[in-house]
Simulated scan of single mutants.
Amino acid sequence: MAPNRTILILQNTLALVIGTAGGGLFWWLHMPLPWMLGALTATMIGAVSGLPLRGPQRIRGVVVAVIGVLLGASFTPALIGQAGAWALSFAGLLAYLALSLVILIPLFRRLGGFDRPTAFLAAMPGGLTEMIELAEAARADVPKVILAQSLRIVTTIALIALWFRVVQGLAVGQAPLKAGFADLAWRDMGWLAGAALVGTGIGLWLRLPAPTLLGPMLVSALLHLTAITESAPPGELVIAAQVILGTLLGCRFTGIRAAALLPALALSLGATLVMLAIALGFALSLQALTGQSADQLLLAYAPGGLTEMSLVALALQAEVAFVAAHHVLRILVVIVAAPLLFRLWQR
Rank of each mutant, 00 (worst) to 15 (best):
R139P: 04
T41I: 05
Y96D: 08
V243A: 04
A210E: 06
L121A: 03
Q82A: 08
A210I: 12
P117Q: 11
I146M: 09
P125W: 09
L222V: 03
W27A: 15
I103V: 15
L88W: 15
R330Q: 08
L344K: 07
Y301M: 12
S268A: 14
A337Y: 10
R343P: 00
V219Y: 06
A324L: 10
L151M: 03
L269D: 03
G126Y: 03
R116M: 12
A241M: 05
Q11W: 14
A302Q: 07
L121V: 07
G50P: 06
L262K: 13
T212L: 06
T43S: 00
F253W: 13
L70Q: 12
I7E: 15
D141W: 13
R347P: 00
T20C: 00
R343C: 00
A193G: 12
L222G: 01
G203N: 08
A260Y: 04
I239W: 03
L340W: 15
L151G: 02
V320M: 01
L249G: 01
L128C: 07
T20N: 06
L159E: 07
E236A: 11
S49C: 15
H224M: 05
L316W: 02
L267K: 05
N12K: 13
I7L: 15
A171R: 11
P233A: 10
L329W: 07
G61C: 02
D295H: 13
I146D: 01
G50R: 03
L286Q: 04
A42P: 01
L286I: 06
A260S: 14
A175L: 15
A140L: 08
T6H: 15
R343G: 10
A321S: 10
L97D: 02
L314R: 07
T155A: 11
P117G: 09
V69L: 04
L71E: 00
L245H: 06
A78I: 13
I67G: 01
G199A: 09
V69F: 06
P117H: 08
I103K: 04
L344M: 00
L162P: 04
M217Q: 03
L8K: 13
A196G: 14
P339E: 06
A138P: 01
V63N: 09
R207H: 15
A240W: 02
Q292Y: 07
L197C: 14
R330E: 03
T212Y: 09
A179M: 00
L159R: 08
A240S: 11
G270E: 09
I157T: 09
L214A: 09
V336I: 12
A39S: 13
L101V: 07
R109K: 15
N4M: 11
F108A: 05
K144N: 12
